[in-house]
Amino acid sequence: MPLWTVHHTPGIFTDDDKHQLAAGIADHYQQVGLPRFYVVTLFHEMRPEDFYVGGEPCPAGVRITIDHIARHNPDQEARRRTARWIDRILQPHLEGKAGLHWEFHVDETSDELWMINGVVPPPGGSDAEQHWAKTNATSSY
């Protein structure tokens, strides 16, 4: 599952902005064969006095952590492609916001410590995972 946690100061995202960003993120993962329900996006609004960059309060900031569990990048070039892809998703939502500090990072977590609705997800690319993607729901396999 990709878990995107978006920490941000007030006024960065409207409710519609959040929906558009979360949908765009899910769209990409679906295009590479993952079930949409694997994708979880959480928005956490933080007061500027609780958001520090370089030890100073940040009046306009976004910090995104992304946990990849369902898939991992096999090498440096794949990791660079992933970073560029994430940047392309974020740019339209963040560019042009005056004084905004924003950054992201991705962690790749073992899928051996992952369950959805009490079920261990099927192997990546398997017929069972493809079925999950088609039905957008967990099921026995």
Score class of each variant (00 low, 15 high):
Leu42Pro: 05
Pro48Asn: 12
Ala133Lys: 03
Gly54Ser: 13
Met1Thr: 14
Thr65Asn: 10
Pro35Met: 09
Asp87Arg: 11
Thr41Met: 05
Val40Asp: 01
Ala133Leu: 03
Arg84Ile: 12
His72Arg: 11
Arg36Phe: 01
Arg47Met: 10
Met46Cys: 15
Arg84His: 06
Thr65Pro: 06
Gly61Val: 04
His44Gln: 14
Leu3Tyr: 09
Arg71His: 10
Cys58Ser: 15
Val32Gln: 13
Thr9His: 02
Val39Gly: 06
Ser139Phe: 08
Gly24Ile: 00
Asp127Gln: 09
Arg79Tyr: 01
His19Arg: 15
Asp15Ser: 10
Ser139Ala: 14
Pro92Asp: 11
Val119Trp: 04
Val119Glu: 12
Trp4Ala: 08
Thr135Lys: 12
Pro10His: 05
Tyr52Ile: 03
Ala78Leu: 06
Ile66Pro: 01
Leu94Trp: 03
Ile116Ser: 07
Glu103Arg: 06
Asp87Lys: 09
Gly99Gln: 09
Gln20Lys: 11
Pro59Ser: 12
Ala23Ile: 02
Lys97His: 13
Gln130Phe: 06
Thr9Asp: 13
Ala78Gly: 13
Thr41Asn: 01
Thr41Gly: 04
Thr41Tyr: 00
His101Val: 11
Lys18Trp: 02
Gln76Arg: 13
Val53Thr: 11
Arg80Asp: 12
Glu112Thr: 10
Glu95Ser: 13
Arg63Pro: 00
Pro2Lys: 04
Pro121Met: 07
Leu94Lys: 03
Gln30Lys: 02
Pro123Asp: 13
Leu42Tyr: 08
Ala70Ser: 15
Arg36Gly: 07
Thr135Asp: 08
Glu77Lys: 13
Ile116Trp: 01
Gly96Glu: 02
Val120Pro: 00
Pro122Cys: 07
Gln31Ala: 15
Gln130Pro: 14
Gly124Gln: 10
Pro92Gly: 05
Asn117Asp: 12
Ser140His: 10
Glu77Trp: 01
Ala128Pro: 11
His105Lys: 10
